[in-house]
């Protein structure tokens, strides 16, 4: 492989703690084209540490684009300029020598900054706890092939289930709405027969929790879909709207 190095200027958001005032800090780096952007920050951090300076705090884990841990806003776009990848999969060959790259954390009231580029996305977990499951206990379930599901429906449910919970949809949305995330989960279960018994109950609970966690409303800009590393479709949002309105209108439960 012909190793080519890029000389770049990084402008990285630094913030000491949740209540501290943050600002951008400039760094000059030289990085191989074959590196990922996170490897570039690894290198930078190793250098900073060697100099006795505080490294840049950011989160990542699998570095294969599936765990949803990493999430940086690169030049104004969550997960950077290349569609359908997570930050960890963004390779430096997509930049040009001499570029300036702005690196910011996901910004939303519901995702408070913990430190530098690390944010708290636990709001997603609270939403999932409110109803993101099929209430089956371990054991006592029917044989797997007793529930035939058409290939198309299964594929659509899978596409919704492919969500990695990274929060890029919230970060991309000008309203910091979590509709794409929530609708993906709601859709997975509302498409599958296993999810039917709780279908209308689930959507009400999850939407209510979503609102409570401080996410904004959807205004259909579809920025979420454009930035989603897994290409989750806004059709899921439509499906959730439909289910929600139907549930609100027809459910006899006055408590929810």
């Amino acid at each position: 492989m012909d190793e080519k190095n890029l000389n770049l200027t990084l402008k990285i958001w630094r913030q000491a703690g949740p209540t501290s005032v943050g600002s951008f800090q400039d760094f000059k780096v030289s990085v191989s084209e074959d590196s990922s952007i996170l490897e570039m920050i690894d290198d930078l951090n190793n250098e900073l540490e060697g100099d006795g300076k505080e490294p840049v705090t950011f989160e990542s884990d699998c570095r294969e684009g599936i765990c949803g841990t990493c999430g940086l806003v690169i030049n104004g776009q969550p997960h950077g300029p290349i569609p359908k990848i997570a930050t960890c999969q963004l390779h430096m060959r997509n930049f040009k020598n001499g570029d300036t790259i702005w690196i910011e954390p996901f910004r939303a009231k519901a995702f408070p900054i913990i430190k530098d580029l690390m944010v708290d996305r636990s709001g997603f977990d609270r939403i999932m706890e409110s109803g993101g499951y099929v209430s089956v206990n371990t054991g006592g379930v029917p044989d797997a092939n007793e529930i035939p599901i058409s290939k198309d429906v299964a594929a659509e449910a899978f596409d919704a289930a492919a969500c990695i919970g990274c929060g890029a949809c919230v970060a991309a949305c000008k309203n910091a709405s979590a509709m794409l995330f929530v609708s993906a989960k709601v859709s997975q279960f509302s498409l599958l027969p296993q999810g039917q018994p709780e279908r209308y109950d689930r959507v009400q609970k999850m939407v209510m929790k979503m609102d409570e966690m401080g996410f904004g409303s959807c205004t259909n800009t579809y920025a979420c879909e454009a930035e989603c590393p897994k290409g989750i479709s806004i059709k899921n949002i439509a499906r959730m709207n439909r289910d929600y309105i139907k549930a609100r209108a027809t459910s006899e439960n006055l408590e929810v």
């Binding site: 379930v141 797997a144 599901i149 290939k151 289930a161 279960f189 599958l192």
Partner: peptide, 22 residues
């Protein structure tokens, strides 16, 4: 075998063939 049954009951979207079976 129970694992597969359990996962399907939870709504895990395993790959299916055209007849709708796993």
């Amino acid at each position: 075998e129970s694992i597969i049954d359990q996962c399907v009951a939870q709504g895990v979207p395993f790959a299916r063939d055209y007849g709708g079976l796993l």
